Simulated assay, not measured.
Amino acid sequence: MYVGSTGLRGLHQLLFEIASRSVNEVLAGGGGCVDVTLMSDGGVRVTDDGPGIPVEASGDIGGTGLESLLTRPYAELGPGNRPAVTWSFYGMGPCVTNALSSRLTVEVRHEQVRWVQEYVRGAAVAPPAAAGPATGSGTSIAFWPDTDIFDTRECSFAVLATRFKEVALLNRGLSISLTDERPIGGIRSVRFQFPGGPGDFVALLDAEAGAHIPPDIIAFEQEDARMAGTVEVALSRRGSGEARVRTFANSVPTPEGGTHADGFRTGVTAAVNTYARQRGLLTTADADLTTDLIVRGLTAVVSVKLDRPEYEGATRGRLGGGTVYDSVEQAVREHVGTWLTHHPDQAADLIGRRP
């Protein structure tokens, strides 16, 4: 139940439990690299260049070091330790991967010491052992899913590449690679890094929709203590067609939308109508422009990163939280309003009439 299935979905979740820890650790340090390798023997290796997991003293059961991480559920993160990526269904973390793997090995480079340890079906073979000096810092975890539990050990390169690209687009400064050593024809590898973050995401979505001219993109990021998190939004207008709004909470898609999606739509609508009335593009006799009319032709990415996200429903497809709605609505209204003021020609075109 902790990984969702014993099929491909659950297999990928084992990897995500490890990868999300690495991604959050390198992003907390201002950015870095996470490298994922699908090994030819059915194992998966995740390596990062973060600070390295501390190795706690033997018997420190309540600690936050290596053995605790691999044998106990994650402790809840507090403010200042916000996860940029939350792939875990129940906040269990790498201990789930360890418990559901026939074998797991870990190498840690921390404070100039290289540590190694091995686990078999979740149990440590021996305590962590110092294995000489370390160059640099970071953590490498390799695991082999238990074939007595899972129907397959063949991860999908295409599915993982799509997901890792999405995560890189939502987290500027992150470099994430995926290497597949399994193909008979030779190794294949991709690397993703996007300095523009969600702005690059919107540009790619527009390109996929056939936009031949790079659009003007409105992009901003704002911290808001009310929702204990940040909101990052990027949007463009292609001119016509259905709105395409992609929403995320802690870098996980929210296909059913939620309070961040609702706040975005309300904020855009308020900004456009306020500007239109201030500039005389709408008279007192005119009704407000509707949300459906305003968002027509928009491409947008709305990403919130929260200390403690609230979801509606067991599938976590819809985000809740009234403060999220308020924070997103205000941020969008203010930033879109400012953009309209500085781009009067585009604003008039968006509204559909000129003064």
Rank of each mutant, 00 (worst) to 15 (best):
V301H: 07
V231Y: 00
A219V: 03
A129K: 13
Y119E: 00
D224G: 01
V167M: 13
G229T: 10
L340N: 03
D288T: 06
Y325T: 00
P54C: 08
M227N: 07
P195S: 14
G210K: 09
I176S: 06
L350R: 07
P344N: 08
G31W: 09
N24A: 04
M39V: 06
T291H: 01
G43W: 13
I53M: 14
I187K: 10
R9G: 15
F157E: 11
E256M: 10
R333T: 05
V233A: 10
P94T: 11
A348V: 05
N250H: 10
G263I: 01
R246H: 13
R109M: 09
Q346A: 14
E154C: 03
E166P: 00
I351P: 06
R353F: 03
W339Y: 11
R308H: 14
P73A: 03
A271Q: 10
E242A: 15
R333I: 00
V272R: 13
R191A: 14
G91Y: 13
D288I: 05
T341Y: 00
I294W: 02
N250L: 04
T259W: 08
T254P: 04
L77C: 00
A331T: 03
G7D: 15
P54G: 05
S20W: 02
I217H: 03
D345M: 12
D326Y: 08
L289E: 09
R21D: 15
L66P: 03
A158N: 12
Q346K: 11
P94F: 11
R246F: 12
G10K: 13
R296G: 04
H110Y: 11
D41K: 09
E208G: 02
V304Y: 01
E312R: 15
V301E: 05
V85S: 02
G258R: 01
V113F: 03
G173I: 05
N273K: 04
E111I: 11
I187R: 08
A261L: 14
A261D: 11
A129V: 12
E67Y: 01
A285C: 02
T135S: 12
N98D: 07
R21G: 12
T64K: 10
V26E: 07
L289G: 05
V336I: 12
L15N: 04
T105I: 05
D206W: 08
G210S: 05
G136F: 08
G239W: 01
G78W: 00
T162C: 06
A130I: 02
G29A: 13
D286F: 02
D180T: 06
G210R: 03
